[in-house]
Design a protein around this nucleic acid. Structure first.
Lengths: 122, 122
DNA sequence: CTAAATGCAAACTATTTGCAACGAT
DNA sequence: ATCGTTGCAAATAGTTTGCATTTAG
């Protein structure tokens, strides 16, 4: 039986959603029947420390976990829904403006998602 | 006596630090002697909703509160220390790559702060 | 007099920890 | 037999809420 760390990594890498610890827990339970939520949290924490996944921290909601491949995020300014975005890497451009060595960046773009937009929110 | 909302807004606008609710609470107590931490939280929440301040959410530490004027942040990849950064506004550049209307962005640049750097961390 | 602002304690949520039990080498 | 992995319950941290009280207009 594979360790949970591997199962969890696979779930995150195969998903294009942004799963919370709870989502992952439920998904594991559906497959595997017997996991503790704490085990999911512990494994997620280890995976982050090993830089095999990243934590996506968003306002007013539990943390989400994401694959490591560089990409940006669109965040709805009203409901905080998240989606992925693959823009040009601007590391070089940023680096050119800075006297220190940068190791990466995190770009969240705010907008109004279609759902909120259709409710008249701007 | 001014309302706490105003006092808090002033504290945040006058500080170039990134204060936590607790920091603000302590600062108010020092000036004013009698506030409840919950009142600080309630006011911070309202101020965010009114978009008079923004919440700065960082990994593994309490939320911090920041003035609204657009700027970016440098985050130490090791100790998560934050500092301000005033880079060129890239809204137009981002907008040009996107089919939807954006309303702003949040850019965090990761690096190794001097303190961590001097400890040999890279 | 009424509505908004405050204080306090309790509630809540997300996450972490301590520790005993388990399972694979 | 040992060491890393897991489950469970309890602890923790940060934040929010309910409600009675105070304050301001």
């Amino acid at each position: 039986m594979p360790k949970y760390a591997d199962l969890i990594l696979t779930i995150i890498n195969q998903s294009n959603l942004h799963l919370t610890a709870e989502d992952i827990y439920l998904q594991l339970k559906a497959q595997n029947s017997k996991v503790a939520l704490a085990t999911v949290y512990n494994n997620l924490k280890s995976l982050c420390e090993e830089k095999k996944i990243t934590k996506l921290i968003l306002p007013d909601q539990p943390d989400r976990y994401d694959r490591i491949a560089r990409h940006d995020h669109l965040i709805c300014r009203h409901c905080n829904a998240v989606s992925d975005l693959f823009l040009d890497d601007i590391s070089d451009q940023l680096q050119a403006q800075l006297p220190i060595q940068i190791s990466g960046y995190d770009l969240k773009i705010h907008y109004t998602c279609p759902k909120c937009s259709s409710k008249g929110l701007r």
